[in-house]
């Protein structure tokens, strides 16, 4: 069992997300940074969909009530146990009574804490993810708070010896915004209303350096930058949207819809961020800067294939090392 000692309302239990209920309006949800989430479970030999804690408000502290394998991935939040600081994306065995502290990140915005076996909360509509908007799933449908005690799925896990081990989740790519001046390149495919914007407006969309405003959460991010307007006013009938959809509301400032987004929307759609780059948005803090890069479907699928293979490659490398 683990006990939450301090947390913020946006720190939630997440897994790979909820599938098959978009047609009754239930969001996909799930970890915002699927790469870091996958790595956390892969490092521990967990099922790929095991539930973890997604931490976006720091500091975050918890206590282990028994010896537990644990992995922390995603944002570099200097995970500390009894004064020892773990490297980013690291797995080790925590001892009963130890306290884990995650500090405000030096890079990235969301950390993932996985435990051997995964967190044991009931599945709601097929998933352990917390749907904050609708108030169900995860732990009582809400963010984690001081005093919450979480059980782990009982499995016979191999103890991690010594100092532990690690594995970077993003291949050659660095976390965006390691440097305050850096601009993340986020690939996107033109969407349904792309041609309803003038050539100049489309160019502005691709060239602008956009800033993530404080209206940024698991539902979506509002960006600030150039004001974009379609050639003529569009009032569309509501339609299904996917995480990554970039809408241009009448204010002219883009909104990127994310994991907990409404399943349908009505604003014109300029483009869709490719699935393989959604993690970059997940790791972007308020004030973070990004530029959209036009991408075609074939390149997007190639990027997705590589991203999806990563946790498997990490898991097989670890089993090779373990002999």
């Amino acid at each position: 069992m683990i006990e939450i000692l301090s947390s913020g309302a946006t720190n939630t239990i997440q897994d790979g997300g909820r599938r098959g209920h978009l047609d009754i309006g239930v969001s996909m949800g799930g970890a915002m940074d699927i790469s870091a989430f996958g790595a956390a479970n892969a490092l521990l030999g967990n099922p790929a969909d095991a539930a973890v804690i997604e931490v976006s408000m720091f500091p975050f502290r918890l206590r282990f009530h028994r010896d537990t394998n644990v992995a922390v991935t995603g944002a570099d939040c200097m995970p500390a146990v009894e004064g020892r600081i773990m490297p980013p994306c690291w797995a080790w065995e925590a001892k009963q009574g130890e306290i884990l502290v995650l500090s405000p990140p030096t890079s990235g915005a969301r950390a993932y804490v996985a435990f051997g076996g995964g967190i044991d909360v009931p599945k709601v509509l097929g998933s352990r993810s917390t749907d904050l908007k609708a108030g169900f799933g995860g732990w009582e449908g809400r963010g984690l708070m001081r005093g919450d005690k979480l059980s782990l799925v009982p499995v016979d896990v191999k103890r991690i010896r010594g100092l532990g081990y690690g594995g970077l989740p993003y291949g050659e790519e660095k976390l965006p915004l390691v440097h305050p001046d850096s601009v993340a390149e986020v690939r996107a495919i033109p969407a349904a209303e792309y041609d309803s914007f003038s050539l100049g407006t489309r160019e502005a969309f691709w060239q602008e350096v956009w800033t993530v405003t404080k209206d940024a959460n698991r539902m979506g991010y509002r960006l600030s930058g150039a004001t974009l307007r379609p050639k003529s006013t569009l009032e569309l009938l509501s339609h299904g949207i996917v995480p990554g959809t970039i809408q241009i509301p009448p204010s002219g400032q883009p909104i990127i819809q994310l994991a907990d987004a409404n399943t349908c929307g009505g604003y014109p759609k300029m483009a869709t961020v490719i699935q393989a780059d959604l993690w970059k948005l997940a790791q972007m803090p308020v004030g973070g800067k990004l530029r959209f890069q036009e991408c075609d479907v074939v390149s997007a699928i190639d990027a997705l294939r590589i991203a999806k293979e990563f946790p498997n490659r990490l898991a097989s490398a670890l089993s090779y090392l373990a002999g």
Binding site: A191, A192, H239, T245, K269, T272, I274, Q275, A300, L304
Partner: peptide
């Protein structure tokens, strides 16, 4: 028909 990313199509 329009692309909604690389894994979805919107039929309008």
């Amino acid at each position: 028909i329009a692309h909604a990313g690389s894994g979805a199509l919107l039929l309008d």
